[in-house]
């Protein structure tokens, strides 16, 4: 198990699985093997943290609600649509 700070071919091959590892999409034995490597390899360990940070940043961005003005206009459209009820095949 390498503790190298650089990226070896083995590390680059493992990185292909890193995304699936972070999604919990690996068999337990493979997951444990990767965890052991991440603990021992600075390069891959850092890549794992960087990827987790990118994922967390995306998820945080996804929780941002639309601006209030946007949703006010959206609500007006809903009220107008329901009031008009000129569109067929809506709810019975």
């Amino acid at each position: 198990m390498s503790a190298a700070t650089g990226s070896s071919p083995r590390c680059r091959a493992l990185l292909l699985e890193l995304s699936r590892y972070l999604d919990g999409d690996l068999a337990p034995a493979r997951r444990r093997a990767i965890e052991r490597h991440l603990a021992a390899c600075t390069c891959c360990g850092t890549m794992s943290i960087r990827m987790r940070t990118a994922i967390a940043a995306c998820r945080a961005e996804g929780t941002q609600p639309p601006p209030r003005a946007v949703m006010v206009r959206a609500a007006k459209r809903v009220r107008a649509l329901i009031a008009k009820s000129g569109i067929t095949a809506g709810p019975r």
Partner: peptide, 11 residues
């Protein structure tokens, strides 16, 4: 992907 010098921390 990181080169021989390895990746830097994001922050």
């Amino acid at each position: 992907l990181p080169g021989p010098e390895g990746p830097r921390p994001i922050d």
